[in-house]
């Protein structure tokens, strides 16, 4: 990211890569992880009782945030992506909450985290949610505009499709029209 002086938080160590989705046919478990390899790995492999099969991939970035006041680097390796309330299905809790917030000048996003190998979610700490909010709100220029990034209290990581998360699908197969 370009240097932006005067901002407390800054996105650093931006690593392009892939979100790799995989599934286990026996247990029907699904999970995803970030790979910084140039080509997303697609080989199946055994891990304990599971045999993980490649299920899909999307281009994405991984980043850290530097606190320019203290010099501290805050890693965000557990962050899969952000979901905009407007991309959620109608009548879901996120969409309804987002609509109310929007009427008050607030755009709601949810920080969706990766799962642990056992399928449990790697929750983002409250302090990291605060840092994400500061990172994006400090960059805004439109008067009165406000971004609100929420932790995944909606369990979106379980219920929503990866297409609803701001990661890049299908770029290599994109057609011109």
């Amino acid at each position: 990211m370009a240097e932006q002086t005067g901002l407390r938080y800054q996105m650093v160590d931006v690593t392009p890569g892939h979100v790799v989705m995989e599934h286990d046919l026996m247990s029907r478990a699904m999970r995803s992880y970030f790979s910084a390899e140039q080509v997303a790995p697609v080989e199946e492999y055994r891990e304990g009782d599971h045999i993980w099969h490649f299920a899909g991939t999307a281009q994405a970035i991984q980043f850290d945030v530097r606190d320019n006041r203290s010099g501290e680097i805050i890693p965000f390796r557990e962050l899969l992506g952000l979901t905009y309330y407007g991309c959620a299905k109608p009548e879901t809790a996120l969409r309804r909450l987002g609509d109310v917030a929007h009427e008050n000048g607030i755009s709601v996003y949810v920080a969706v985290a990766y799962e642990n190998p056992d399928g449990s979610v790697r929750a983002l700490a409250s302090e990291k949610i605060r840092v994400l909010n500061a990172l994006f709100n400090d960059r805004l220029r439109t008067p009165g505009k406000k971004i609100l990034i929420l932790p995944d209290v909606f369990d979106l990581y379980r219920t929503m499709s990866y297409g609803e998360i701001m990661i890049d699908f299908g770029l290599t197969s994109m057609e011109a029209d």
Binding site: L82, Y84, K145
Partner: peptide, 23 residues
């Protein structure tokens, strides 16, 4: 950056979501 004009071929809803996030 905030206030930028974004030139793209993408017309997915996520483009609007990202554009809104960075103003």
């Amino acid at each position: 950056q905030a206030g930028n004009l974004l030139v793209t071929l993408q017309v997915h809803t996520n483009v609007i979501a990202a554009a809104n996030l960075v103003d």
